[in-house]
Design a protein around this nucleic acid. Structure first.
Length: 584
DNA sequence: CGGGGAGGCGCC
DNA sequence: AAAAGGCGCCTCCCCG
């Protein structure tokens, strides 16, 4: 293999560990491997990757992005494209588009590596992505030979697919997502620790000295609750004991959840709800969280690309998917930098309209809030009802206010509703459904199959039948939502990948204006700092903010074209440029 | 004493 | 006692 740029461009470069330490790499073109593998000493890996990236920018093929890319980023090396064998294996082995999956199933080690770990790894260790503490996986797959074999099987699987183009797009998007996830962690979310502390102190009182001591306002709420209940010693943090105390005080509740408490009138209710709110804030995002997850002005949560069956990302450690809105003001750009924040308005309904080719629903969202458009269509009276009905349609509501509204949506948008209703019917029968680009739902569990079989046996009891019916409907709701949530995740990956690609082309700002906490690769460039399902935040030098905003908008248009081609569905963004994430 | 389930609640 | 999909993570509490 050579990095001489006068040769034909390298298409792929497979990177793996060498049997006796270090790494090896080999280029792969359309007609197969080119030349012998080259050996790379561990200390030379970043230089090797960086050089080849500059000369021929191959698509890097490796077992796991999370296992190799963080150290490249630390060394200042960024890559444009990759093929993450573990993530792609997971998609291909399930995809209904793949016609010949046999070869993919020959080596169970890849399936095991692709499966989410049974147990959370390393507790809340922030170092999950580091090589030393990576999830336990079969290291024998790290070798170049194994990676090459698997890559060959995956290429054959894609070629066998009924729609190889879509599947190839999905694999590219998934792999780009893996790069983004590692880069997000490397760059971190710019976090204003002082503002976070102000918010905590305002609500809870000053940070108490001991780890077990309750902040004064939390303790104060507890005193009022106990007084109002007439029970000076009840342990409010213990649901069983609190429930007994509530009932003893004449409050007829079956649980201690806030939604149920809110329906009763009693002097203890309001302080109890306050207590719960404060206790939650303290335990989930209090000073302990701040100490553990924020350092040098950066919050670095751990993202798990493809961690959810639908293709959404999961997180493990740091709670990136559950940052309360209350703390958004702590998300603050560095001095002379700005945040460009964008979320997609009604992403899932718009994705559904595009998938189904539903002209009426597309029209309802064209150039405006989709829920308002539904109101304008005359079938539903208020925006709140339109939102409730749409969520019910996508989640499979059958009762309550939401379930009552869904039939109106069915009359207004028969194509869109037909798509999700069909997906539910397939799921209830035990079938699999598939997203727009080819991610398929997992087959039913054996327990599910057994329950269905038991209900159709002679002598089945009505209880058997009820169990089977309920589990069938549960699964129908899952597959109903899977097609929409999964395709929305694909749209979001395409959006992310395009933003990422375009941001890399910006001119770096002078070193004196850099944001060193964002890491070697990103300290002088606009970079993605946060991603949450349908929402992104870019941290950018002030002078690039307007151009970044344009990039974010244009990338949404590009994602829509890439997936759905014709552009008949608008994907509107709510876009803000600001110092803090919650302000204009 | 650690693991796991349940209750509860934060996000989309 | 949530009606309706996908998650993570905290505390409590039971159990081996």
């Amino acid at each position: 293999m050579s990095t001489d740029s006068s040769q034909a461009p390298v298409k792929w470069c497979v990177l793996g560990r060498a049997p006796r330490g270090g790494f090896e790499a080999v280029s792969v073109g359309a007609s197969g491997t080119a030349g012998d593998p080259v050996a790379i000493a561990p200390s030379e890996l970043a230089e090797f990757v960086g050089d080849l990236e500059r000369t021929s920018a191959p698509r890097w093929v490796w077992r796991s992005t999370g296992a190799v890319y963080p150290e490249l980023l630390t060394a200042g090396v960024r890559v444009e494209r990759c093929h993450d064998l573990t993530l792609c294996h997971q998609i291909l082995r399930n995809s209904a588009l793949v016609r010949e999956r046999g070869p993919l199933l020959t080596d169970p080690r890849w399936a095991e590596a692709a499966a989410p770990p049974d147990t959370p790894v390393g507790g809340s260790s922030p170092a999950l992505f580091d090589i030393e503490t990576a999830p336990p996986s079969d290291s024998s797959l790290d070798t170049l030979a194994e990676s090459l074999r698997e890559f060959t099987r995956q290429r054959a699987a894609v070629e066998s697919a009924s729609e190889p183009g879509r599947l190839a797009l999905l694999l590219a998007a998934e792999s780009a997502g893996a790069l983004v996830a590692a880069e997000l962690r490397a760059a971190g979310v710019p976090w204003d620790t002082a503002e976070h502390d102000r918010i905590l102190t305002e609500r809870l009182g000053p940070r108490p000295p001991g780890i077990d001591a309750k902040p004064e306002k939390l303790a104060g709420a507890g005193v009022i609750v106990r007084q109002a209940l007439g029970d000076p010693s009840v342990a409010i943090d213990s649901p069983p004991r609190l429930l007994r105390a509530l009932r003893a005080a004449g409050i007829d509740v079956a649980s201690t959840s806030q939604w149920e408490l809110a329906e009763h009138t009693h002097p203890a209710i309001e302080p109890l709800l306050t207590y719960k709110r404060l206790a939650r804030l303290l335990s989930a995002n209090g000073w302990v969280w701040l100490d553990e997850w924020v350092s040098d002005g950066r919050y670095r949560p751990v993202y798990i690309p493809g961690g959810v069956v639908t293709g959404r990302w999961a997180s493990s450690g740091g709670g990136a998917l559950q940052i309360p809105r209350l703390l958004r003001p702590a998300l603050r750009a560095d001095d002379d930098w700005l945040l460009v924040s964008a979320d997609v308005s009604q992403l899932e309904p718009r994705v559904l309209a595009a998938m189904a080719g539903d002209r009426a629903m597309s029209a309802a969202g064209r150039g405006k809030d989709l829920y308002s458009g539904i109101v304008a269509s005359g079938f539903i009276a208020t925006r709140a009802d339109a939102k409730l009905a749409m969520l019910g349609a996508m989640y499979g509501a059958t009762s309550g206010e939401s379930g009552r509204l869904v039939p109106r949506l069915r009359r207004a948008f028969p194509a869109a509703m037909g798509l999700v209703d069909d997906a539910a019917a397939v799921g209830e029968r035990g079938g699999t459904v598939t997203t727009w680009l080819g991610r398929s739902s997992p087959p039913p569990e054996p327990e599910w199959q057994a329950a269905q079989a038991a209900a159709s046996m002679p002598g089945a009891t009505s209880r058997d039948e009820n169990v089977a019916r309920r589990s069938a409907r549960d699964r129908g709701r899952f597959t109903r939502n899977f097609v929409v949530q999964g395709t929305a995740a694909e749209w979001a990956l395409a959006w992310l990948a395009e933003i990422r690609r375009r941001l890399a082309a910006f001119p770096p700002v002078p070193a004196e204006r850099s944001a060193p906490a964002s890491g070697a690769v990103f300290s002088r460039l606009p970079h993605l700092a946060f991603f949450l399902h349908d929402e992104i935040i870019v941290h950018t030098p002030r002078e690039h903010a307007d151009a970044v905003a344009a990039v974010v908008t244009e990338s949404a248009e590009a994602a829509a074209r890439l997936l759905f081609g014709d552009g008949s569905v608008d994907f509107l963004l709510d876009l803000r440029v600001s110092q803090r994430a919650d302000k204009d």
